[in-house]
Design a protein around this nucleic acid. Structure first.
Length: 677
RNA sequence: UGGCCUAUGGUGUAACUGGCAACACGUCUGAUUUUGGUUCAGAAGAGUCUAGGUUCGAGCCCUAGUAGGCCAACCA
């Protein structure tokens, strides 16, 4: 009875392999190590989901460890926000820990490293050190303090710790190799003097350890088995290993397990940015109202926007884990939240862009409280009452004086159903002096009440409209959001700053009318405004002035048909394809050539001819040797060759040979293309 | 002119130690529907960056290219 096995991602493969090679399952331990210098965003959720997800999968502890080694940037406010966000997502950490808890241990180990000659105090300016460090292509050179005596190093380091020196006077460096191809191995700094107050250790320390030294050893101290981080830390792995192996002999009795760092590609989401620095800029420049602005990709922003933890976790699951750079389409995130909310959100009626509808044959003073189902996807959701009367608001978009048969909504002379109420027929319109419609007049069929079971009520009409009784309508502010940036990957453009792609219309504030039941709604409550989308009650909402956020719209096939004009944003052009040499493109086009239908082949052929004009004989020549079975490539070569010959290329022997072989081929196209060369 | 990493439909991820490329989103049909939603049925779309090699057989292995990413903070 094997449940179909879910395929593993590469991290799970690594763990399975370690387990198979004898790592006890009980030794599995993970960690999520945020620096408390900003708010968590959806990108972090991936890292959280990976490590906490693995913890859940293998029933292993996951530590929440604050990587707080830089007192200049870190604050308690961020610690609190991070804890709140991780909890909100529904994860439970085994221990709440701080790198700063290990400062003493780190210091003790550093002293031992100095004694072994593996670390030294450097007393140069940062500029001088940077110069000696070299560049990726130029090896570094040793600095003048590199070979200080162990005694001097010990003395200096001790005095650094005691606060005898000013910031910048000295640093402690690991002594590795200034000419190493990995720049991180060129005697990396382990400690710097920082006379700053730390949010946890106060003024106890005036030297603070750097990331590489701290992070790996914190993993080691916590006996983390798999330390998972994003790809940009790949080069750090070598140093991570150097440090941990250097320290291992000191503590192998108490700390037998050496952690293993592995790296995955971080998440990018289309039409937004995903770096704390850039998000902070949006906050500081007032582009958004704060870290929790519903347009922000922060966890707190998504939460305020109405996203659910379940939807976000589902999203992370679907996104997968691998090692290549990626840009996830927001439509996947939207799919996840719709899927969750569709099952759980109560339906209500709200009109965002109202126009008055008068039912001429409905008694002026009559009010009916009609039965409305709260959620047809959830039987337990029950029913509520909505008031109906002679004068209603409907959506402006839901009426046209005349329209073709594809338009299912209200027109003059046609019937539609009012959701939960009656079938109506458009009769006439009232216009102002400028010809704008100010009022729609209709008649209703008193026999057609929803759910009454009468023959009239069962009549099929093509459209159903939502509405709200004017007399009973409640005013509410609705905030509609659009993407923050116009560019799919705003921070990848080489010339333009990401701020240049800001969408000026990312927020639209609307005065809407909602059904009266919504006066009961509490902050955070989520609803489906029928036919419109999902909305939640914003933090700014009060009892007498409701504020809603639009979480996400419903899928809308009608809108797609109406304006297919929206040009597919050009941004999907792969930058690589733009810069690719013509010959490369020709090869690619050729490869698929034989699969294309005839008309497409014509097009591709023209394209190849265009490209061939940029190709030299030297480019093309190697393709003459293309394997016989790769017919497409040979066809493309033939087409391109034709262009070159036309331009006066001489027929070398290898060209003749190529043509000769092609003529003998069984593929008609190839034969035809080479026939008149 | 250096080192490291990556390359599979529009997007993202699969394909157990080589066996004629799967799933999801998106797109497009059709059915159902008192939400142009949901649900259901179906379709299109990749010969796996290129070339060569090993093999009976390569997305997986080897070689050489090409393209993209990361690396020069007393940040993490």
């Amino acid at each position: 009875m094997s449940e179909e096995k879910k395929s593993l991602n590469f991290l799970e493969h690594i763990i399975e392999e370690d387990l198979a090679n004898g790592l006890p399952k009980n030794d599995l331990r993970f960690r999520f190590p945020p620096e408390p210098n900003g708010y968590l965003h959806i990108g972090h959720t991936k890292a959280i989901g990976i490590s906490f997800g693995l913890g859940e999968k293998y029933n292993a502890p996951v530590n929440l460890r604050f990587d707080d080694t830089n007192p200049a940037k870190e604050e308690q406010e961020y610690v609190d926000a991070i804890k709140r966000d991780v909890s909100w997502l529904g994860y439970t950490w085994a221990n709440e820990l701080y790198s700063s808890d290990y400062f003493q241990q780190l210091y003790d180990w550093a002293v031992l490293l100095i004694k072994e000659g593996k670390a030294y105090v450097d007393s140069q300016s940062s500029e001088a050190m940077a110069e000696q460090k070299g560049t990726p292509t130029v090896p570094g050179v040793d600095g003048p303090y590199r070979n200080r005596s162990i005694e001097e190093n010990l003395d200096l380091f001790q005095r650094m710790k005691n606060g005898e020196f000013n910031e910048g006077a000295h640093v402690l460096r690991a002594k590795i190799d200034m000419a190493h191809t990995n720049m991180l191995m060129r005697d990396p700094i382990m400690y710097r003097i920082l006379k700053k107050h730390h949010h946890r250790t106060g003024d106890t320390w005036c030297i603070y350890p750097m990331y590489d030294w701290t992070h790996g050893e914190s993993d080691y101290i916590e006996q983390i088995s798999h330390s998972l981080c994003s790809l940009e830390f790949k080069p750090h792995r070598e140093l991570y290993n150097w440090f941990k192996e250097s320290v291992y002999p000191y503590s192998q009795e108490e700390l037998p397990l050496l952690p293993k760092q592995r790296e995955f590609a971080r998440l990018n989401l289309s039409y937004t940015v995903m770096s704390k620095r850039k998000l902070l800029k949006l906050v500081q420049e007032g582009i958004v109202k704060g870290w929790d602005d519903p347009r922000m990709p922060t966890i707190s922003g998504l939460r305020r926007r109405g996203y659910t933890p379940a939807a976000i976790r589902d999203f992370i699951e679907r996104v997968g884990v691998a090692k290549r750079d990626n840009v996830i389409d927001v439509s996947l995130l939207e799919f996840c939240i719709r899927e969750d909310l569709n099952k759980t959100a109560p339906r209500v009626m709200a009109v965002l862009d109202p126009i008055k509808l008068v039912i001429e044959n409905y008694p002026s003073d009559q009010v009916e409280w009609l039965e409305a189902e709260n959620n047809q996807e959830d039987e337990s959701a029950g029913f509520r009452k909505v008031p109906f009367s002679k004068e209603l608001y409907i959506e402006k978009d839901d009426f046209k004086e005349e329209a073709n048969s594809k338009y299912f909504r209200l027109t003059l002379g046609k019937e539609v159903r009012l959701k939960n109420a009656y079938i109506i027929k458009g009769e006439s319109v009232v216009k102002d002096a400028n010809g704008n419609i100010t009022e729609i007049r209709c008649s209703y069929d008193p026999e057609s009440l929803s759910g009454s079971g009468t023959e009239a009520s069962l009549r099929k009409v093509k459209g159903t409209l939502h509405w709200v009784s004017i007399k009973h309508a409640v005013k509410a502010e609705v905030r509609e959001y659009d993407r923050l940036f116009m560019h799919e990957a705003p921070d990848t453009d080489e010339e333009k700053d990401f701020m240049e792609f800001l969408n000026p219309d990312s927020l639209k504030v609307i005065e809407a009318f909602v059904e009266p039941s919504l006066t009961e709604a509490q902050t955070g409550d989520r609803f489906q405004f029928q036919r419109l989308g999902y909305f939640n009650v914003d933090d700014d909402s009060t009892a007498d002035s409701l504020v809603f956020n639009k979480t996400v719209g419903l899928r809308d096939n009608w809108a797609k048909q109406t304006k297919p004009a929206e040009p597919k944003p050009q941004t999907q052009q792969k930058p690589q394809q733009n810069k690719r040499p013509a010959i490369e493109v020709i090869k690619q086009l050729g490869k698929k050539y034989t699969n294309y239908p005839a008309d497409k082949q014509e097009k591709v052929k023209e394209e190849i001819k265009m490209l061939a004009k940029e190709v030299s004989y030297e480019d093309l020549q190697p393709l003459f040797g293309t394997a016989a079975k790769k017919v497409g490539t040979r066809i493309a070569t033939a087409i391109a060759l034709g262009v070159l010959l036309e331009q006066g290329l001489e027929k070398h022997d290898d060209i003749l040979e190529f043509i000769e072989k092609a003529q003998e081929d069984t593929n008609d196209i190839l034969v035809a293309e080479t026939a008149n060369l």
